[in-house]
Design a binder for these strands. Structure first.
Lengths: 187, 187
DNA sequence: TCAGATTCATCAAACATTTGATCATTTGGG
DNA sequence: CCCAAATGATCAAATGTTTGATGAATCTGA
């Protein structure tokens, strides 16, 4: 795997013999600039890099932590939210775990079948659904999160503490700017 | 939507009345620290924030650019790779667009059916598959990418030019560090 | 009060993804 | 030369996602 420095300074005209997941960003940005002079190359590089980095982190976490334990990434997100925020309405769970209500509905079928959480009708509104972790779900999320956080720690070591804070600051600023960008949000 | 500053300074003990996709990061980090004193909170915050930001950007691009045109995010990634790197073996396409060979195989069925690309057996190795854009595929990716890049530009404006460069540098450093972290990669 | 609008959840169909199995082709060692 | 091992692609089954439709419960306003 090339270092990140290499990936930023290459300017090949032809597709490099070995185009990898990492080096493709730099190649793509330069190629796009030539094909479409009007392209916003810096925006393209930012979004492409953001996606590559996240996808590497998620792939690692999912394949080294969650799948081996019979969990999926979305399932983890739901159980994680319930663990930290406590029993709540399904609508809230969907919002904070970043999925549509329909997707959650489908996901709940497997999580409930596996005995990790329970679905109940809310008393104050019989349309609504109240979700809560079962005992088994609570024990499971504890163990899985510990392993998850160990992998997170390994990733975090790539950056200096000050760099981690700066990365978080920039990502938060990016999210905050989404309103100006009139970005589409779920629901 | 709360500003990113707000999200970083709240320290509520109970779940806030309105827990959103954005504010959940801060809430979750503090809660996890109390529940599990051994947690690496900074690593947790970094990975959580990275995922939230990326998921917001992807959701916006997919729902405002790709789905309305009858495309999907993974389909776009494949056509984008073929557009920029030219005809190539399916194995390479899978690598640079970040998916497993099996996932690409399934995806190719719809892309081929929609007349956007063609699958051919490679001459030098009759096991291998050669992929190339059709005329229709070429025209389509041009238009879709233009719209895609316009949305990317809107997102990029949230940051100052220097901040964008720093964000890209930090993400690249994170990816480069994945070898030290012994992260799992595809294939 | 009650009928229409809204909200919540689920379903249906199409699509994409994962892991593991299978089949065809190619490679490499004896 | 030939057979075992490796490689490339696809398939199968399970899971999760999207949009749009449907049904049930609640709210709103005349």
């Amino acid at each position: 795997m090339p270092s990140y420095r290499l990936a930023v300074v290459t300017h090949n005209a032809a597709p490099p013999d070995e185009l990898t997941f990492w080096s493709f960003v730099d190649y793509a940005v330069h190629k796009a600039e030539r094909e479409l002079p009007s392209v916003n190359a810096e925006a393209m590089r930012m979004v492409l890099t953001l996606n590559r980095a996240t996808s590497m982190v998620v792939y690692d976490l999912e394949s080294s932590v969650h799948r081996p334990r019979g969990w999926t990434w979305p399932g983890f997100r739901v159980l994680f939210a319930l663990w930290l925020a406590g029993p709540m309405e399904a609508k809230t769970t969907a919002q904070i775990s970043g999925m549509s209500r329909a997707a959650l509905s489908a996901l709940l079928n497997t999580l409930e079948r596996d005995g990790l959480l329970s679905r109940e009708r809310a008393t104050h509104d019989r349309r609504a659904l109240q979700l809560s972790l079962t005992e088994a779900g609570y024990g499971a999320i504890l163990g899985v999160f510990r392993a998850h956080n160990r992998r997170e720690s390994a990733w975090a070591e790539a950056l200096e503490p000050e760099e981690r804070r700066e990365l978080v600051r920039l990502l938060n600023k990016l999210m905050a700017g989404s309103t100006d960008a009139q970005a589409k949000f779920r629901n």
